[in-house]
Design a protein around this nucleic acid. Structure first.
Length: 1018
RNA sequence: GGGCGCGUAGCUCAGUUGGCUAGAGCGCUUCCCUUACAAGGAAGAAGUCACAGGUUCGAGUCCUGUCGCGCCCA
């Protein structure tokens, strides 16, 4: 073995051995004891960053641990197509490199370009995961857009549509004019911007007299003047004193000339310059109402049945082609085709020149921005597909137990049998648990305030919505629906809401026979008053690629397209397919062996930023489609920031590629360090530094990873030393470890470490795990046991060899989940040297990855041995300390004296040779008379030790004086405590008696120290 | 505006239901290249636990408020 651990010479070979042995493969048959984690699929937008490294390291630690405890483990890997994110990066790249836009390509050609990008990064991502040591079941690797996942998406969409939970809605959406797509509420980032309030005068159609004054104008205040083109009312609070004069009057909208009413609405904030409420300070009492361009105004518009006038094109330019019909001929005509911000300036300028601009005030406020393009989002009127999340559904899977409870979850408006209810209930029941617990609140409050989920996206990259539509009359529709061979599709009309639905009785078959009540409703609607009324009919196709003989979906599709039905151009929100990930990867809607064996999975491990976007939706869909929660535990880990607390990102140049860390420090070092930094806090900081890698490249990495590298190197060398000394190792049955203090001690520490490491793993306390293992490996095994073993082996003892081998064996097992490569490598070496080792002298498993987790033996945890060894260790340290303080050369042997009758004294005498060797002393006198004027003194538990021949009396006086002071402080504090009757009365008995013992020991120490001081003075 | 978290040694962080003289790693100081490891060993210095109140026999820990920082949601 090399003198230093060189990870690059070990990692790939070890990984290859694992894969060749099939060590990561789950047994689909499962068994009683299974453990499953589904990977949070990384986006194929870019290579993995350090956050992914952390996320996947933690999962791998748990998977490896569970595998060693004998569970049939499945770690399901894969990637996410990440709709808008991926399309955006590819668009940007093509624009930069070729100067072409998406619209310069045919749809399929452009998708092929994105597909190529995906292929490249998927390969790269999987290579990164492998380099980190992730033991995923690679043969099951999925992609959210592969055939298996696509089938699940189609089935899920179909079922939701059939159950009436998907509807077409005209709503104000968060529109991103740059990417021209709708964003979910979660995808809007609120940024604080310095803006203005513009005070603009709107002339009254007829002047109004208020308490003797004639009013010609009213003044509205707005942060977005450009939307005034779409104003359809001015609102004021009914309690405003001016309201009685003005409500019902008309205003002539400047620029446009539109006559709009003044209406009363309580939403309007009354002006109050003294108010704490900023809005009141800025308010004039008059609110322009633009239902098509503001969510609040939309609400007001609904309340007052106001017209809705959309004045913008999808790209954010002013346009009269999308619902605005009085622009032509007005002064507003000049604004057409201007960008919204250009128009803002032009309008303000117009008001200024017309003397209608009363004031402009600075105003700081929050503005929603697209998380993709970072441009301000535009509230925009649009037709979108929605999922109704608070609507009761009969489609709730029958697997869900019927407990006969109230239809609404207590304290909420959420029906138990709605999607939101299905997601919330398991949390309230305790079936889904969060670690740390506080994140349950994030999940809960999000669900409680949930709005319907807009699922259509104006993108090309994603699962295309399986709906075809066309306009036709009721009569045409009726004739069509009666044809048996087309009843395998769902048909709905979406005027206002979906008002007609036909659902086959058996949701899984395509037969037409025996349709349910909705079918009757459909026929009734056909026969309703006006058979010639035209409306849009939506047809949802279940799986156009299915080969079922009854279905002939391809034929139906052909028929639809031949008959003028057009496929919806949009794709689904990327989170739709992510929400299905735990079931789609296992083959749902088929009831596969995998689902039977591994669903629900055991753990979801992710960062807090996607608790709402992803975690909650997986619970929703898992419950809805499979009738059970997707996982019982959600572990939320910290997010990694750079050294100054900033988010790591490419644009800031402070990101770290895990592969660069692996090159600079090794994969195990990275894993160990990341685990040791993983506490329950929200964020961890990682100082970033440029470094020259072994291959000569300069890359970002972090000195933090030295912790892990040093740890690995220490383990490597300790193992190397141990194995160099295992020749002629006696069998365990031949040795008597109970008879030697250091043996008893290290075996006790070993078992305590197993106990603590196991507890840390079970509680997801990764930093505790790393700490416990670090302390044992370095502080106990290397610093003390190995040093002692050297001396004992040199003295001819062989027993320490067997203990060394056993400790190393267990240590490797304990360390394997966290540093798998190095431990596997050492394990194979150890197997060559001593294949049979430890209690039982049994042969070790061939590969560590498949070895059994060591179970702590409580009987081996020996408090007396640990206490005795602590005395021994303190004595050695005491001598070394004196030696250092008095500048005694390490090679100068010194003499020591103490009372052998005391407990520590006996321990030292029992291990005299070892002690003399470790402290490099000679015990010359075991008498209590040994205090001399040239002696240095230290005490352990009240027993004085005298180090003789220390000549620097002044240094010793300073040292002892300081020590006496410290001891006296301790004595005073405890005496004060013990003098307090309330303490004696209230504190637990063991606390009081512990204080008494401490006081006695301190008093003995104080006596020793002061006596020594006196003899020094002589 | 609502919610969550953080503030402990020069730096990065532990500190579990309140109870030893508040810990670790890095950095720093002194000594040592002792045949496992200088990516190492031995010893050491270093903290008004953000601030102010409160509860308690006892507070880094619990409560209230203030200041500073970060994140999520509206």
């Amino acid at each position: 073995m090399e003198k230093n651990y060189e990870p690059e010479q070990v990692e790939s070979a070890v990984y290859q051995r694992w894969t060749e042995a099939g060590a990561f493969a789950a047994d689909a048959a499962g068994g009683a004891n299974t453990y499953c984690i589904v990977i949070p699929p990384p986006n194929v937008t870019a290579p993995l960053h350090l956050g992914h490294a952390l996320n996947n390291t933690l999962q791998d630690i748990l998977i490896r641990y569970k595998r060693m405890t004998g569970a049939d483990t499945l770690w399901m890997p894969g990637c996410d197509h990440a709709g808008i994110a991926t399309q955006t990066v590819v668009e940007k790249r093509i624009l930069a490199q070729e100067g072409k836009r998406r619209t310069d390509f045919a749809r399929d050609d452009f998708i092929a370009r994105i597909q190529a990008w995906k292929d490249q990064y998927e390969v790269q991502i999987i290579a990164q995961l492998k380099a980190m040591g992730c033991s995923c079941d690679w043969d099951r690797t999925r992609f959210t857009m592969d055939d298996v996942c696509a089938k699940a998406v189609r089935e899920a969409f179909f079922k939701l549509f059939a159950d009436g939970l998907i509807y077409r809605g005209k709503r104000l959406v968060n529109w991103d004019p740059a990417t021209q797509t709708v964003l979910a509420d979660d995808e809007v980032e609120h940024e604080t911007v310095q803006g203005h309030f513009w005070y603009m005068k709107y002339p009254l159609a007829e002047s109004v007299e208020i308490e003797g004054k004639t009013i010609e104008h009213i003044t509205i205040a707005t942060t977005r003047p450009e939307t005034m083109l779409g104003d359809t009312a001015v609102a004021m609070n009914p309690t405003d004193p001016r309201a009685k004069y003005l409500i019902g009057k008309k205003v002539r909208l400047p620029l446009v000339g539109r006559i709009i009413p003044i209406i009363a609405d309580e939403h309007v904030v009354l002006p109050d310059p003294e108010s704490d409420d900023e809005k009141a300070r800025f308010s004039t009492g008059f609110l322009k109402v633009t239902p098509a361009h503001d969510p609040d105004d939309w609400q007001i518009g609904q309340r007052h049945d106001l017209p809705i006038i959309n004045v913008m094109a999808p790209d954010g330019t002013i346009s009269d082609k999308f619902g605005w019909d009085d622009a032509a001929g007005s002064d507003a005509e000049q604004l057409l085709e201007m960008d919204r911000f250009e128009a803002r300036e032009a309008i303000v300028e117009w008001f200024r020149t017309e003397n209608l601009l009363e004031d402009v005030r600075e105003y700081t406020h929050e503005v929603g921005h697209s998380y993709r393009s970072h441009v301000p989002i535009e509230p925009y009127l649009s037709d979108q597909w929605y999922i109704a999340v608070k609507k009761s559904s009969t489609g709730v899977s029958p697997v869900q137990p019927d407990t006969g409870e109230t239809p609404v979850l207590q304290g909420t408006d959420i029906p138990v049998d709605s999607l939101a209810g299905l997601a919330l209930k398991p949390l309230l029941d305790g079936r889904v648990k969060f670690t740390p617990e506080r994140y349950a609140k994030t999940y809960q409050s999000w669900l409680e305030n949930l709005r319907d989920w807009p699922i259509s996206r104006q993108l090309w990259w994603g699962h295309r919505i399986p709906i075809w539509s066309r306009q036709m009359s009721r009569a045409e529709w009726g004739a069509w629906i009666e044809k048996d061979h087309h009843a395998s599709v769902l048909i709905g009309s979406a005027r206002n809401d979906i008002s007609v639905r036909v659902v086959c009785e058996d949701g899984r078959s395509y037969g037409v026979a025996g349709c349910n009540d909705d079918y009757e409703t459909a026929l009734e609607l056909r026969d309703a008053t006006d058979p010639d009324e035209k409306m849009t009919w939506y047809v949802c196709l279940r799986d156009e690629n299915a080969e079922e003989p009854m279905a002939k979906p391809a034929m139906i599709r052909q028929w639809l397209e031949d008959n003028g039905f057009i496929r919806d151009p949009d794709v689904l929100d990327t989170w739709f397919s992510s929400a299905l990930w735990p079931i789609s990867t296992m083959g749902w809607p088929e009831e596969t062996d995998l689902l039977k064996a591994f669903y629900p999975t055991d753990l979801l491990c992710t960062a807090r930023e996607i608790i709402t976007l992803w975690v909650s939706r997986m619970v929703m869909f898992g419950q809805y489609f499979r009738g059970d929660i997707p996982f019982s535990q959600v572990y939320i880990h910290a997010m990694i920031q750079d050294g100054s607390g900033r988010k790591m990102s490419k644009s800031l140049g402070n990101g770290i590629d895990p592969l660069d860390i692996i090159a600079s420090h090794g994969a195990d070092a990275m894993r160990f360090t990341l685990a040791s930094m993983t506490t329950e806090t929200q964020d961890v900081r990682m100082p970033v530094e440029e470094m020259t890698l072994p291959d000569g490249r300069v890359a970002n990495t972090s000195p933090k990873f030295d912790i892990g590298r040093n740890f690995c190197n220490k383990l490597w060398n300790a193992s190397r030393f141990a194995m160099m000394n295992l020749e002629a190792m006696p069998a365990w049955s031949e040795i008597h470890p109970r008879e030697n203090l250091s043996d008893r001690w290290i075996i006790s520490r070993l078992n305590a470490t197993v106990r603590d490491a196991t507890a840390a793993l079970d509680a997801f306390r990764f930093n505790d795990l790393a700490d416990v293992l670090y302390r044992f490996m370095w502080g106990d095994f290397c610093d003390w046991y190995l040093e002692i073993a050297k001396i004992r082996i040199n003295a001819g003892e062989s027993a320490p060899k067997a203990v060394l081998a056993h400790c190393l064996d267990v240590l490797l097992r304990l360390l394997h989940p966290i540093v798998p490569f190095i431990t596997e490598r050492i394990w194979s070496q150890l197997n060559e040297v001593v294949p049979n080792r430890g209690p039982g002298d049994s042969p070790a498993e061939e590969m560590l990855i498949r070895a059994q987790w060591h179970h702590a033996d409580a009987a081996m945890i020996d408090a007396a041995a640990e206490a005795d060894f602590e005395f021994y260790r303190e004595a050695v340290r005491g001598v070394r300390n004196l030696r250092a303080e008095h500048n005694v050369p390490p090679k100068q042997k010194i003499e020591i004296s103490f009372s052998p009758e005391s407990n520590p004294g006996e321990i030292i005498m029992d291990n005299r040779a070892l002690f003399e060797s470790q402290a490099f002393v000679e015990v010359i006198s075991a008498g209590s008379e040994a205090s001399r004027s040239d002696a240095g003194t230290f005490t352990i538990g009240g027993t004085p030790f005298y180090v003789l021949g220390v000549i620097d009396t002044e240094a010793e006086r300073v040292r002892l004086t300081k020590q006496a002071e410290t001891i006296q402080n301790g004595i005073t504090a405890i005496e004060k405590k013990l003098a307090n009757e309330k303490f004696l009365a209230n504190a637990p008995a063991e606390v009081v008696s512990r204080e008494r013992e401490r006081l006695n020991a301190l008093k003995r120490d104080f006596e020793t120290v002061t006596n020594s001081l006196e003899s020094l003075i002589k």
